[in-house]
Nucleic acid binder design. Sequence first.
DNA 1: CCTGTTCCATGACCGCTGTCATAGTAGCCG
DNA 2: CGGCTACTATGACAGCGGTCATGGAACAGG
Lengths: 198, 198
Amino acid sequence: MAVSERGPRERMVFSAAQLIRRDGVASTGMREVAAHAEAPRGSLQHYFPGGKEQLVNEAVGWAGRYAAGRVARFLAALPEPTPGGLFAQMVRQWTDEYESKGFGGGCPVAAATVDRAESAASTREAVSAAFAEWTGAVALALSDMGVPAERARPLATLMISSLEGAILMARAERDVRPLTTVSRELGPLLDSAANATG
Amino acid sequence: MAVSERGPRERMVFSAAQLIRRDGVASTGMREVAAHAEAPRGSLQHYFPGGKEQLVNEAVGWAGRYAAGRVARFLAALPEPTPGGLFAQMVRQWTDEYESKGFGGGCPVAAATVDRAESAASTREAVSAAFAEWTGAVALALSDMGVPAERARPLATLMISSLEGAILMARAERDVRPLTTVSRELGPLLDSAANATG
DNA sequence: CCTGTTCCATGACCGCTGTCATAGTAGCCG
DNA sequence: CGGCTACTATGACAGCGGTCATGGAACAGG
């Protein structure tokens, strides 16, 4: 799965994101990406003349778009949209993965931040853009649920921060407890913001 | 600073933590650690016969102990200890660093998690222990401030998760905004838990 | 003095990495 | 067919990584 469809270029970006989120940027080799994508090694320099940095940046961008896109689908899946319900869905995506497929992977955007924020300026910008896109999507969703405009972005930042940190702790402990904890603790706070006067 | 005192062994562990939190585990070389610690390269195999993995694990352990130890000192610095005040201090340590020294480094425990959780079992355990020690210290502090026992650990997990995630976002954006945001948004929630009936 | 322990010095090894150079194939256009 | 572009194949290179082998200081105890 997750390999055959679409062109080799897109497959390589996708594979890069998968491998990065498991092993980090530095430990993920270009040859390994090509092999994982079942793409010819020679295509690397053809599609990514900017080298590894370009590939990583595109993988981060893909992850940001993916995360932002999920938000809308989470909303659609909620019978009665509430901020706490959205956050629970966001968290659940991770608990589901960890419980069904193990704790092998984290967030590729976080991995790129840790490994490249200081050493590659363009990657740091890509990571920043990914977080911004994701935060924007969540903030928009919050607004739609009645959260006052000036509270939407801060709460979105809080949601994503907590989720990212909980992912780290869950991977470390090999236990979804941190994820379920932040979901339960933050839910009421988020819901109460939806009914407050702006 | 931070180099001359103490023995070479301890200096190398400390330097490893510093370099890891800036560049990640994989991008930090052993020779680089020795040079940064102004320690002889030959001492590496003497003090760390377990190789890089041992050095990384000790650096993570050091970071966990350091973070846990800070909690008590934060408490002592607060005229009127409250959960929100403690969290504000924890966040402030990072905003202070970022504003005075730039966004060069993140949390070494997070870096080790991202880079080694899947590839080195002993490092994953070290990271788990570090988070546990830190969480335990925060939970203990919360209990001392009147937070009901069964709420202390979940809230401590929430605090550390949010902080870790905010550190990531702040580094990515090169802006302390995510840090100040989570502090402001979470403060009231934390304080309200201190006065609740257990 | 000899002996052992602790610590440091240095060079070599092998594997892997990203990148490049070069050449080859496929397919469309005219 | 020639010519052009898109894509693939492969080998080499230079660099760096962690690790190991070997040997030399420094210094203690006997």
